[in-house]
Amino acid sequence: MSPEKMVTMANQIATFFMTQPGEDQASRVADHINDFWEPRMRRQLLDYVAAGGEGLSPLLIEATKEVREPAQ
């Protein structure tokens, strides 16, 4: 999918969990992505972050540390 669309989708998720109480927002974002994003979508996200992650919210970048690396 286009990088813009992916950034929008990812940021929407971060926006929701940002508003939730507690300390573990980044983990909850990562859990959501791990649960719902198919491996090639996660691959695209992780590659995008590795390339600078332009436009992604800081919470999302934080979360990608816990996003599962898809097996090949």
Binding site: M1, S2, K5, D35, F36, W37, E38, P39, R40, M41, P70
Partner: peptide, 18 residues
């Protein structure tokens, strides 16, 4: 064990050729 593609994701992946 990995989640699959949702309809919009299928279409995106189709456009990407995968």
């Amino acid at each position: 064990p990995e989640p699959g593609l949702r309809i919009p994701n299928m279409l995106d992946a189709a456009v990407d050729g995968t």
